[in-house]
Design a protein around this nucleic acid. Structure first.
Lengths: 212, 212, 212, 212
DNA sequence: AATGAATGAGCATTCATTCAT
DNA sequence: AATGAATGAATGCTCATTCAT
């Protein structure tokens, strides 16, 4: 059921200039409301904030996921594009990985409730989920592979290093890692005393230890 | 609206034995429904399953959090008590820590939706949150301290190891660690391809690496 | 998805007397609103008229169809039960059929919009549709069969009597007849100059003519 | 809100030939959508199908009824004109009546949802209603009168033939008959097991029976 | 003239929570 | 003490219709 209408791009040269302006108003309002009330804020609230009718939101963004994507698209894209750049510029692949994950955390931690919604199995957010994966999974995979190739990290850690039976476990997938990092970011902005970034660092550091 | 009535304890020697039985029926029903529909299942469903009215549930457990706590109290307690035991029995504090965390993960992963609700900033779950922390935080602290004392782990990892300014960062708190582990468990039962335990292992492994 | 809760019967001796009274209030209000605004009136209106919350209606009648059925059950039942009685009391089966159909028309014509909704393929009214058919179809079949057996009517009329090829057409079904009568009643109460009953009489009279 | 602008006639020699073409495009699109989604299809769908804006439709056809009329005008006219022709060509007036009714049924049955909308007391369709009546009522009247004059049918059937008081009932009006036939056609295309034409035949056959 | 963006009333539906019985 | 009926706020979503561009 997702987005039959044209995928709205605030920068696309649509015919009406007021529509473009409106589009932007919408994105701004949504961004603001997302910060206050999280990405699950009622459509009505966003519409009110933007000073438009609800229908307008539905017109531009048939699904809540579409709206969220539109709001954060630039930042997700920037994050995705930073991957190769970091790989090229960093002294080692592992450093690049570290810094890229840090970028990802930066992004998630500042978006109230986004991390939480990314892991929800809620069908309505399927598009959002897909978008994130489509953009970031390949990047993460590349970095992971490079870091593994350079010998800096290991991806075959068993879940129970102590147990006797823990041989050839398949490599940790980029998906699992991204998901883990995402999970670690849940509630990061609203939980005093919880530093998601630090834990993520630890998680990545864990990749350095040789499999037991 | 926080629980004014006496926190109900199914094991307390209350006056009437049929009341205790009723209480137990409630807990059994709730446990069953939690498995099926998660801990956020409608009150009505739980009441129906128990064969009682909703009012009865509210009488015994004014808050959903109270109910959840009651349902899992034994297991949380067991987990808490396992801490010192493991510390005494394990070859090294780090091993104890590892195993204890594993116990915690075991617990969370098998409780549909519990991990998700633990991190929710939802006010209604404050009691639940508090209970977990009250019971598990001291244990985790002990294990962490012991493992640090034995020199097996480091707790002063900076969030940004690469950056020049990362000296005397305060030790990672038990709270942050517990929260992180909890977060990693979110969606573990409903997300194919996501192995929470493995990531937790990695996280703990990260503690072994010396601070950069 | 229809009616998981107990099929509400206003006369059933449910525990609470106020609930029974309320149930009746609901039925009265619904009946009144149905007359004014038709059976598709907004749930809110009915609730307002009854002086209760909308939830109360949903509790008693999960589906609009359930409500309609409850409102008219007695009358439908009466109509169904009249069939055999008429057959026994009338001089000939055809007379019985005529009178029974008349009863059916009586019923439909006085229920604003009911006839229209009966033919709607709207999924939400499936229960209603089924209820009518379950109750009335057998009765109609009996009467039809009896009248055919008595030689008073013919059920094998072709649609196009003039056309050369119109031999052994299957008998007109009770379903088709009931549906036709129902259709004829659509708008009967709101269309001045339209006398549904008279047309129904004509339709039934048509059964008397021998197949061409 | 009834159509203030000139009732658009696609065949009128309007100034610009492209405007006429546009008009036709609209009608074609509407016809197509009516078949798919019925005559109550969303305006937007029709506009989309025609490749024009919704405003254009509203400009040409202020009311949905206007659009429907325009779409089916030719066919309604053809039906109306067939009346006298049949009367002239058929062996008897009754035959003509039968065949004409058949034409009318043909028309309605193939127009998804049109029959249903014709009887709706919905104010918005008043124009449509009027148009049908204006065109077809005189024709029907002529046929009815002729068939009555020829002695083939009777129009003074009482609604309750059995009752003792059923003498000088006014003749059945052409309006009532047309309405009845229209009603019988409701749902004809979407109801398996319901043969509208057969019932209409029966209804007309009923006119042959002498008044009781 | 055409466009299609914006509007917002209107409706269904769910559930936590209260409280009369 | 238990029951479960009642409440109604909250929210999503659809379209007919208007009107600025």
């Amino acid at each position: 059921m997702p987005s039959t209408p044209t995928p709205p791009s605030p920068s696309s040269p649509s015919r009406r200039k007021d529509a473009r302006r409106n589009q932007q108003t919408l994105l701004d309002a949504a961004a603001a409301v997302f910060i206050t009330s999280g990405v699950e804020a009622p459509v009505r609230d966003i519409a009110a904030r933007a000073g438009v009718g609800m229908g307008t939101i539905y017109r531009h963004f048939p699904t809540r996921a579409d709206l969220i994507i539109a709001v954060y698209r630039h930042q997700v894209d920037a994050c995705a594009e930073a991957g190769p750049a970091l790989l090229a510029a960093s002294p080692t692949p592992y450093t690049a990985l570290t810094e890229w994950i840090d970028l990802f955390v930066d992004f998630l931690v500042t978006k109230h409730g986004l991390a939480a919604v990314l892991q929800a199995d809620n069908a309505g957010f399927a598009t959002l989920h897909t978008y994130f994966l489509d953009r970031l999974l390949p990047v993460c995979e590349t970095l992971l592979t490079a870091a593994k190739a350079s010998g800096e990290i290991h991806l075959a850690h068993p879940a129970h290093p102590g147990l006797p039976d823990h041989p050839d476990l398949p490599d940790l997938t980029a998906y699992a890692l991204l998901r883990g990092v995402g999970n670690l970011c849940i509630g990061a902005d609203s939980t005093p005393g919880y530093d998601a970034r630090r834990l993520v660092t630890l998680l990545i550091a864990g990749l350095r230890t040789p499999p037991t």
